[in-house]
Design a protein around this nucleic acid. Sequence first.
DNA 1: ATAGTATATCAATATAATTAGATATAGTTA
DNA 2: TAACTATATCTAATTATATTGATATACTAT
Lengths: 102, 102
Amino acid sequence: MSYDCCSRSSLRELSQVSLFLKAVADENRLKIICFLRKQERCVCEIVEFLNLPQNLVSHHLGVLREREIVSTKKDGLKVLYSLNDKNISKTLKFLNFLISKL
Amino acid sequence: MSYDCCSRSSLRELSQVSLFLKAVADENRLKIICFLRKQERCVCEIVEFLNLPQNLVSHHLGVLREREIVSTKKDGLKVLYSLNDKNISKTLKFLNFLISKL
DNA sequence: ATAGTATATCAATATAATTAGATATAGTTA
DNA sequence: TAACTATATCTAATTATATTGATATACTAT
């Protein structure tokens, strides 16, 4: 299959992939994603897991939320974070396609 | 298969993946990679393709080289860049594993 | 209402990455 | 050797991102 990395639509896709990768490329955020693989977690669990200040973790979660890599739902006082699998695997597929030889 | 994102060896791997992703996450470098999918190219072709100053392109190529995402070989005056497929697909596989649900 | 708990946001700072301009190196050709 | 071409490096400037401390919001329980 051919892919023209110069066409207008491809450039849009490239920029989307770039944003996704930037969000995922941070080591703390990678750890968060990895931590969420098994099950959803509230912020306080993630804070404890990473051993980082709450506001910093909240910032990183915000980045992941912005890119729709994670989803949230409220549970009383807590906010539960989980992986947004569909979006992740869609983007990973495109990445695989994009950077592997034809 | 289980993966403990906290073990010493996993943390090393995480940091490797993070470096790889940071290198790939830049839009210009994504374009370079995409441009190299079909065939190897010399720097001047990449410069023309990206329409960016030569020194900037050289910098981005240096980043990709540092992460062993591309390889080079000399061809007279020119330096030919090509994708380092083995390393790319190895890291992509690990990434897939790392951020997909168990 | 008040106090307490969980999470998010804001402002400031520190750190890192991208970019540009100038220059250096290395090979080639005359 | 001198001029030329292709690429890389150095330094400085700009921009983006991560981090910290303080504070705000939103919900819960008393």
